[in-house]
Structures are given as C-alpha cells and as structure tokens.
C-alpha cells in the first residue's frame, strides 16, 4: 500500500488554511496556485477557520475554501453549483445524495467535504459524454421509465452504476437488495431493476 500523500514530519497531514473569517467560498476551477494563502505546515488549525480543500469533480479540479462542517453534498450543491446531486434527508437514510468517490458509491451527505481532499468525485453531471451521449445507465432509466418525479433519480443512477461495478447486479434479487439504500417514494422500483439489468453489460465496460 502506498503512503498517503502530503505527509509532513509532524505526523499530521499538511493541511492548507486560509486566513480570515468565513467567506463565501471560492468555487472556481483551479487556475492558479493558492500558495500565498497557504500557511506553514506546522500552523495549528483554529476553530471556524476555513479549510482549503481540493476536489476533482467530473474530471475537473476545484479548490474550495470551506467551513469544515460542510458536507460533500453541500459543497457540490452550494459551492460548486452542481445541484444534480440531491438532498433528501441529510442523514444517510434515503440515498438521494449518492455519488461516486474514487469509483465507489457513497452518501455525500454523511461525508465532510474536507475528508475528500484529493479525491475523484463523479456526480450525475459527469456521466454523459461531452457530445451529449448519455451513459448507458441514464438511457436505460429513460427506456424503462425508472422514475416519476425524478428527484431520487441522480442518486439511483449513481448507485446503479456503483452496484454494477461492485458485482452486485448479477440477478434481479441481487439488484433489489443492493439498491435498497435508494428510496424512491414514487416507487418506480420494478422499472429501476429493469433499467439496471439493461445497462449492466455496457456499464461494466464503461
């Protein structure tokens, strides 16, 4: 196993702190180094001090100054403007906020954004190719009417991709069980299962 990056000698990861009070977060793609805002590695972090967090979201790098309390979900929605990821409960009970972090499906509401520093995040906005061609899972959801109101849909689709990649979409019963963390109140469940079955093969290759 490789060692975590950004190690310093004092047993603490070299965090970057931004001086000043809480400010509206900078949500621009990484254009220039923010070295001037980086405190020395030995500096002690302070309460309410914004934390600089680097995220790679849908293959684009972002550097954000965040309240440490900000969930990955709120970072995506409120700080980057990627509102495709939904807040349905904010407590890990519905699955609407599912995204892929380093390829694995997780609940972005239960993850502090700062804990994802340096990670690769894929959201619903990152699935379709740049020419507009939908990911097979997206197309399958349309084909099988696997949603009604559409609110849980981004989470269902991300979870469906994660489920296939984990190898847990081998049978209809498997899909039902491993998709049970995504509540669909409109109850499109049978159609969601059909959609994942359709997209399973192409998703594995994607």
């Amino acid at each position: 196993m490789s060692q975590p990056s950004a190690l310093s000698t004092n047993g603490l990861s070299r965090r970057k702190f931004m001086a000043g009070t809480v400010s509206a977060a900078a949500a621009a793609p990484l254009l220039a180094s923010r070295a001037e805002a980086t405190a020395p590695a030995a500096a002690q972090p302070k309460l309410r001090q914004p934390v600089i967090t680097s995220l790679r979201i849908n293959k684009q790098a972002y550097e954000l100054s965040l309240d440490a309390r900000t969930s990955l979900l709120d970072a995506l929605r409120d700080h980057i403007g990627l509102t495709g990821t939904k807040k349905g409960c904010d407590h890990g009970q519905c699955g609407a906020c599912t995204v892929l972090v380093d390829g694995k499906r997780v609940l972005s509401c239960l993850s502090f954004a700062v804990m994802n520093d340096g990670k690769d995040v894929t959201t619903i906005e990152g699935l379709a190719s740049t020419d507009g061609k939908l990911h097979p899972m997206q197309q399958a959801f349309i084909d099988h009417d696997a949603f009604q109101c559409g609110y849980c849909t981004p989470g269902q689709i991300m979870s469906g991709i994660g489920c296939v990649n984990e190898g847990h979409a081998e049978s209809e019963n498997d899909i039902r069980e491993y998709m049970s963390g995504n509540i669909c109140r409109c109850a499109a469940y049978p159609n969601i299962v059909a959609a994942i079955l359709q997209a399973r093969g192409e998703t594995k290759g994607a």
Partner: peptide, 18 residues
C-alpha cells in the same frame, strides 16, 4: 452543528497524542 477543528493525523501515535 457545532464548529470543530479538523485534523488528519498520519500515524496512530500522533492520533492518540492529539
């Protein structure tokens, strides 16, 4: 939520020490 200081210890002894 109360604010908190976020730290990332990189070895167990440092985590215990903090």
């Amino acid at each position: 939520m109360r604010p908190f200081v976020y730290e990332q210890p990189t070895d167990i002894s440092t985590a215990v020490a903090i």
